[in-house]
Structure formats: structure tokens, C-alpha cells
Design a protein around this nucleic acid. Structure first.
Lengths: 155, 155
DNA sequence: GTCATTTATTAATCTACATTAAGGCATAAG
DNA sequence: CTTATGCCTTAATGTAGATTAATAAATGAC
């Protein structure tokens, strides 16, 4: 359990890594993402200040996701065992967020997803490139542009 | 921790329930699902023999999902605390399955999803109605019919 | 058994989003 | 300064899957 500083762009975990850690974000921003068979990135979660970012895997299992820093970030690196015992509820919340994402991807239109996103992460919209928000929403950057234009016109 | 028999169609957990349990399936089939704002069902997971079905929520939090039996089922009902301590890795596997579903929904076409489904659950295809498989895949029953027709023609 | 209800299939049409391509703004590098 | 590189936006075109509707098959109630 140690305090670490990482630079924007630094990769903390790669798919396949063993003995992965959990990261509690003190300041900055992390993301976790997967790369599909076609080589496309899909963002799973953003973790701003106060969040814990941890791969879901067990000790023996290789990591399923990549984790990197979208901003210079200060974090506490923890052994997962410690997380398991003491921070269970935070990890469980993470599972809930994932469930909400499945519902969203199955039922909501691009506009609805975007509106939900800015409710959930009002500050992050300004902090990450549009194409990453598109990736999180499961749409193309072009479609996101259109959504935002309609969004503005509505007001 | 007790052995229970439930009939097909019986609901084990409703959204909003408190003090929810975890269920280890001995025989039969459970499913968990959500109902979106438009009233549509979206299936999250099927749990056949050997699986543990548990809502992701913490003790204080109300349940996010419904759980019901798709077949007459025999199961072991457990306190979640017991699950947390002794069956962590099974719950973690569940999180991994959910992650795979997010990737699938973001990147795979209807045909790819269906092919992946029959690989993952070769036996369940015959055990549940088509419309539930469609719900799990995030497509309409009509689209699933078309996919299956193309699937047959390919061979 | 009959009748009612739910489910699955097929086809015709529609639409949300993807794809492609082009142009405008940045930031960084020489 | 100029040029290159990456990102965002806009518009035109294409397409996978949704929607609608009609028919058939299966399931369940009585």
C-alpha cells in the first residue's frame, strides 16, 4: 500500500497481467478499457478522485482490462486482498455501475446515453476527449457530435 | 443456509427488496433481469446448475434486479455474508461475465452475439423461449429469427 | 376435447447510427 | 513563421436492426 504518482498516458495494467493491484485515486483520472477482436477500444469506467479502480479478476486470473491515466494522477496502490476485506462495498458499487451500463447499452438511444452520462459525470465531460466519451457510450465520435448539436438546439 | 424448491415462474427477488440472499442452483434454471423506464425486460444472466445467482448489492442497498425461476429449481439459499467470505471468487467471475457482456453489446453484431451465446450456453438455447435469448442478446425476437435463419443457411 | 393466449416466424417498411469523406482548429515541431 | 498531426464537426450515403403487421404454431385454461 503505497502512494504513487503517474503521468498522463501511463499504463498501470495491461490485459493479461498477473498479480494486479487496486488503485484508489487521490487526484487525477484513470480509465479502464478493453480492446475487441477488431482492435477497437471500449472504455468501461472512468475513475476520478475518490474512486477505486480495480480489475475484477481474482489472483490467479490474468487481467481482463487495461488501465491507464488520462491525467497526471496521484493514487494509492493496494493489494487486492486488502481491498477485498475492507473495501468490498466500493467494489460492489462498481459492479452496480457495470449493471447500469448493460441496461443502458441494451435500452437507451445515443441521446439518452449522453444525457445519462453528463448527469453521472458532470465534470468529466470537460476533462476527456470527445472520442473517449463516444467510446464509453458505445457510439462513434461523429454520432456524438450530432447528439451534442441536437442537445444544444433543444435549449 | 437452506435447501429450497421453487416452481417455474416463481420470483425469488424483486427490485427494491432488502436483505436479499444469494442462491446456489442445484438443478433447474434461474435468471436475473431488469425492467427499464419503458417497461421492457432485459435479461442479465442465466444461472443453470452449479451457478450462484446473487444480486450485486450490499446489505443496506435495495436490490437492483429481479430474479426468478425459468424451470422448477432446487437451490441453496445463503446469507450474503457467507457468500462474501467463502465464495468471493464465484462472485468475481460473475463480474467478469458482466464485463464481457458490455464488450459484446458495444462491439458485436447480432449474429456474433448469437454465436457467442450458443458457445457459452450450448444447452440453454433449448431450455428457454427465444424471446428471452433475444432479450439477453439485446435484440428483438424478430431479429433473432432472422439471425437463426441465416445461421442455418450458412451450413 | 375447445378456445384463448402466448410465442415464433416471415416480409415490408422505417430509422438510428455507422461509414466515408472533406474542411476547420488546434497544438507541437521544425 | 510554416508544416504536420490529431481532433472535432458537418454532410451524404449506406445498412443493421427496429417496427409493424399478418400468419402459424405452441401452450395453457377450462
Amino acid at each position: 500500500m503505497k502512494r504513487i504518482q503517474v503521468k498522463k498516458g501511463q499504463i498501470l495494467q495491461r490485459k493479461g497481467d498477473l498479480h494486479t493491484k487496486a488503485y484508489e485515486v487521490k487526484s487525477g483520472l484513470l480509465r479502464s478499457y478493453a480492446i475487441d477482436e477488431k482492435g477497437k477500444e471500449h472504455i468501461f469506467l472512468f475513475a476520478p478522485e475518490g474512486w477505486i479502480m480495480a480489475d475484477s479478476n481474482d489472483y490467479d486470473q490474468p487481467a481482463a482490462l487495461f488501465i491507464d491515466a488520462l491525467e497526471d494522477t496521484i493514487l494509492i496502490e493496494k493489494e487486492k486482498l486488502a481491498v477485498k476485506v475492507h473495501e468490498m462495498s466500493k467494489l460492489i458499487k462498481r459492479l452496480n455501475v457495470l449493471q447500469q451500463r448493460v441496461i443502458m447499452l441494451m435500452s437507451a438511444s445515443a441521446i439518452e446515453r449522453y444525457e445519462h452520462f453528463i448527469e453521472t459525470y458532470p465534470d468529466i465531460v470537460q476533462r476527456v476527449p470527445q472520442r473517449m466519451i463516444a467510446s464509453y457510450l458505445g457510439i462513434t465520435p461523429e454520432a456524438l457530435s450530432t447528439v451534442k448539436r441536437q442537445q444544444v438546439l433543444k435549449k
